[in-house]
C-alpha cells in the first residue's frame, strides 16, 4: 500500500491585473460590450421616470421633457445609443451563429445566420418610429 503525503499544494492561479481588459483590443471590446448592461438599466429606469411623469400631470411631463433636453442628458443618451448599437450588432452576429450551429450541427455563413436579424431589426425600428411619430 503506497503511503501518500497529506500535503496538498495550492493550485497555481496567475495574478490578473485589475486592468486586464486594456491589454488587447478584443478584451476591451468584450468589456465595453458587457458594460452596455449599465446603460440598459439606466434607460429602463429613465423610461419608468417618464411613465411616472406621464401618469402624474402634463406639467410634470413638461418638466421631464425639459430635463431630457439638457446638454448633459443629450450626451448621456448619445453614449447610451452607441452602447446599444454595440450590444445589438454583437448580439445579432454572435447568437444566431451559435444557435444555427447547434441546430444544424455545422457552421453557417454569417450572412445567412445573422442576416434575418438585421432585416427584423430594421423592420421593428421603422414600425416603432412610425408609432412614436404618430403616423400609425
Amino acid at each position: 500500500m503506497p503511503q501518500y503525503t497529506q500535503y496538498q499544494p495550492k493550485a497555481y492561479r496567475p495574478r490578473m491585473s485589475a486592468y486586464w481588459y486594456l491589454d488587447q483590443w478584443r478584451y476591451l471590446r468584450y468589456a465595453l460590450r458587457e458594460a452596455s448592461s449599465f446603460f440598459v438599466a439606466y434607460f429602463c429606469v429613465l423610461t419608468l421616470v417618464q411613465l411616472a411623469a406621464l401618469g402624474t400631470s402634463a406639467t410634470r411631463y413638461a418638466q421631464f421633457e425639459a430635463c431630457m433636453g439638457s446638454p448633459v442628458m443629450i450626451i448621456i443618451n448619445a453614449i447610451a445609443l452607441a452602447f446599444f448599437l454595440l450590444h445589438a450588432i454583437t448580439w445579432f452576429n454572435l447568437v444566431p451563429r451559435v444557435a444555427m450551429r447547434q441546430m444544424l450541427g455545422r457552421p453557417t455563413p454569417d450572412a445567412i445566420s445573422s442576416g434575418p436579424n438585421y432585416l427584423l431589426w430594421f423592420g421593428a425600428t421603422v414600425i416603432l418610429a412610425l408609432f412614436f411619430l404618430g403616423v400609425l
Partner: peptide, 22 residues
Amino acid sequence: GFFAAFFLPVHVLFYGLLFPSG
C-alpha cells in the same frame, strides 16, 4: 438581450435624442 437589441436603440434615438433636442 434580444429585446434590448431590437427595440432599445430606436427608443433612445427618439425619446433620448431626436425629441429632446428638437
